Computed example of a mutant assay.
Amino acid sequence: MSNRKLFYLDGKVQHYAWGGFTYIPALLGLPPAEQPSAEYWMGAHQSAPSKINGQLLNEYIAAQPEEALGKAAAARFGQLPYLFKILDVKDMLSIQVHPTKAEAEKGFARENAAGIPLNASNRNYKDDNHKPEIMVALSEFWLLHGFLPENKLKEVLRTVPEFKALAPVFEQEGYFGLYKKVMEMPQDEVNTVLRPLAERVLPAYEAGQLEKKDPAFWAGRAIANDPEGMKRLDRGIFSIYFFNIVYASPGEAVFQDAGIPHAYLEGQNAELMANSDNVLRGGLTPKHIDVEELLKHTRFEAVHPHILKGEPIHNGQEQLYRTPAPDFVISTILLKPGDVYEHTATAPETWIVMDGEAVAKGSAELPLRKGQSVFAAFGERYSITAEKQTVIFKAAIP
Rank of each mutant, 00 (worst) to 15 (best):
R235V: 14
V254G: 00
P227N: 13
N275G: 10
R221T: 12
D257G: 06
Y205I: 05
I245W: 11
P250H: 03
A207K: 04
A253C: 04
V279F: 07
G282N: 02
A270D: 07
L233G: 08
N244W: 06
G251R: 09
D234M: 07
G267Q: 11
D257K: 10
N225T: 10
L210S: 04
K231V: 14
W218N: 07
I245H: 09
E211H: 10
A263G: 06
S239Y: 08
K231A: 15
Y264G: 11
E252Q: 07
W218R: 11
L272V: 06
F243D: 01
F238A: 14
G267F: 04
A258N: 07
A216L: 07
I237E: 00
P250G: 10
A219W: 14
G259Y: 00
P227V: 13
I223A: 06
L210A: 00
A248C: 14
A224F: 15
A222P: 13
F255K: 08
L272S: 03
L280Y: 13
G229C: 14
Y247G: 02
I240W: 12
D277R: 09
A216C: 01
S239T: 05
D257A: 09
M273Q: 11
S239Q: 00
K231P: 04
P215F: 02
A216T: 04
Q256T: 15
F238H: 12
L280G: 13
G259M: 08
D277C: 05
G220A: 07
Y247M: 06
A219Q: 14
A270G: 10
A207V: 10
L210H: 00
D214K: 03
A224C: 15
A224H: 15
M230S: 14
I245K: 01
D257C: 01
D257L: 08
E252C: 02
V279Q: 13
P261C: 10
K213Y: 14
N275V: 08
F238I: 09
L265P: 08
F217Y: 04
R221Y: 15
H262P: 11
F255W: 12
I223F: 07
H262E: 09
V279P: 05
F255A: 09
N269H: 00
I240F: 15
G282Q: 08
G208C: 06
N244Y: 04
A216N: 12
E252W: 01
V246S: 12
G267W: 01
L233Y: 12
K212W: 03
D257F: 02
D226S: 10
A253G: 08
R221K: 15
N269R: 06
E211P: 11
F242Q: 09
R235L: 15
A222T: 06
H262F: 01
I240N: 13
G229Q: 14
M230R: 14
L265N: 00
R221G: 12
G267L: 02
